[in-house]
């Protein structure tokens, strides 16, 4: 896996860690935010890819800067690496959906400091910057959050926007393309994922309404590639029209 910068403004930085070498488990992106030498890692990934993620992470930030992890939901590709991160840094706080606490502890770190996020959402301060936990329940998990950075105008959108891409894929949906052709090609690899994993059209509509009010430059999913600029709006429009929860009906 490799770490690539997404955003930088002084001491405020975002990276994506992407394109894993292990192909027997679903390809996942891990995001890293550093603010004034404090770091939070978003959806730290599965147990199997931990060595790769950690090696890529320390290309970008020192491990001692890790203060927290954000877990969007309970799935193993998101949080089963918890005991390994905990072994590396016992002080790291884990911000998780409250509903999933007892489930996430099954990954094997009974004494890890878990901080529950209430259903209504919340926020965290990292290096003096406030990051918001945005409710995204039933997209796809029944207790699910996204994370918004209002200064960087970046929304980490968990499984929303995910695409199943082949090894060696780019970190971005082509940013130079103004025609929308690159988006159209990319989204064909996202369609089945959203039809099959997103269960609720009502939850989807509600999320689009809320997210449309936000100023978003980059929409960063946990699988696939980042949507930027016009592609953010293209994605929201596409998702709005898609009927979800129907792939096997």
């Amino acid at each position: 896996m490799k770490a690539a910068p997404i955003f930088e403004a002084g001491s405020h930085r975002w990276w994506i860690i992407y394109d894993q070498d292990e192909h027997r488990v679903i390809d996942s992106n891990v995001y890293v935010i550093e603010s004034n030498e404090q770091t939070i890692i978003l959806d730290p990934g599965g147990f199997e890819i931990f060595p790769q993620v950690f090696a890529a992470l320390v290309e970008a930030v020192p491990p001692s800067s890790l203060k927290a992890a954000f877990v969007s939901h309970q799935d193993p590709d998101i949080a089963s690496s918890l005991p390994l991160w905990h072994a590396c840094n016992e002080k790291m706080e884990w911000h998780i959906p409250k509903l999933w606490e007892g489930f996430i502890r099954h990954y094997g770190a009974l004494d890890a400091p878990l901080q529950n996020i209430e259903d209504t959402g919340g926020s965290i301060i990292i290096g003096g910057r406030r990051l918001e936990f945005i409710p995204a329940h039933y997209l796809h998990s029944s207790a699910n959050f996204h994370l918004y950075d209002p200064e960087a105008k970046i929304l980490f959108s968990g499984d929303v926007g995910a695409a199943l891409l082949p090894p060696g894929h780019d970190a971005w949906v082509d940013r130079r393309d103004k025609t929308g052709r690159a988006f159209a090609e990319h989204i064909s690899k996202a369609k089945y994922f959203h039809e099959r994993w997103m269960p609720s059209n009502a939850a989807k509509k509600n999320w689009i309404e809320r997210v449309s009010q936000m100023d978003i430059q980059y929409l960063c999913p946990q699988h696939g590639a980042i949507y930027s600029g016009d592609n953010v709006k293209r994605f929201l429009d596409w998702f709005d029209k898609l009927t979800v929860g129907t792939a096997i009906i």
Binding site: F47, P51, F54, A55, E59
Partner: peptide, 20 residues
């Protein structure tokens, strides 16, 4: 040098993983 530190860290983390 930069290229070689990542495999080393990855190797140590794999040991941590399998030690579990």
């Amino acid at each position: 040098l930069q290229e070689s530190i990542a495999p080393l860290i990855e190797a140590y983390m794999r040991i941590l993983q399998h030690q579990r």
